[in-house]
Amino acid sequence: MKREDLMRVYEPKEGLEMRVKNVLNSLEEKPVRRMNVRRAAALAACMLMLVTACAGAAGLLFSDEYDAVRLAHRALAEEYGITEEMQTYFAQDVREENGVTTIVFSGMTGLHHVLGEYTVTIRDGDATVSWSKDGESTEGDLEAHAWGARQLEILLEMAKQENGFSRGYHKAQEIRAQMDGDELTVSITKGGDATVVKLDDAQIDQARISVSEKEAIAIAKRAFAQEYGLTQAQLDAMIYEKDYAGYTYAIREGKTICEVWFWLHQDEDVVHADGDGLYWARINAESGVVEEMMYDSALAGNG
């Protein structure tokens, strides 16, 4: 078969030209709004991510939901200095309604009273962030009743020592005793309310799956490199945890997906090296789109 024959297979109809022209005419040349960057350090971190993304794996496709999550993480870093590593102390919940995406980062059980909740609202590509403890003092390291980025830095440093996490947790409980109200229980599982139907081997053969497990692993690793700046050595050191969630292929919200999990622990003699933790990606098994992904440094003891 020749190329000209192939081109006729999906030949555009007459309406295309007019439709494209109409869309182009309707585009408005409004200025692009960007978020203000308050912290020079956060800006430097974002620039590093950008450079890594440019140099790394181009061509990955991410779902709209993940794009929103990524924007929310950037907004948290820029506005409050909350880094990816600190995300381990929060559960994340994504809701979308009428074109507005709301992502709530809830401080984990046992720390919720000091960490509070960050709410990121994304509308027309712009993110606004607020913290339930806005206005409260974060002075005084772990003595403060509101723990922001400074306290999370201290917690991370403590957690990197043997049994370090529990010391921070006990400090939070001392503060808890001075405060009113009940402690909120927060599930660390993200998006855990969706129905997932596991596919067995026979069903996998029948399903329209065009992304093999091996390909899903490759896509996930490229996404980790791009999004989290992992080096090739770190990618090579990752341990693939097959069926970590009890399945690899499944139907979730009508989509056939492949979930891949990895552990990274680079040095047996070090409790936690940069980048260590749990990595996870949910890949659309038909299209190869990265539907969702996550890095959990596991420093909050949930790893």
Binding site: R3, I209, S210, R222, S287, G288, V289
Partner: peptide, 28 residues
């Protein structure tokens, strides 16, 4: 399958080389 169909369109109809096809489709 969906993915193979898109590869055929990109590579054989649109003339994208293997590298560009991979980039567009987010694969190797």
């Amino acid at each position: 399958p969906q993915r193979h169909r898109t590869m055929v369109v990109l590579h054989y109809m649109e003339g994208c080389d293997v590298r560009e096809t991979a980039r567009i489709m987010g694969t190797t």
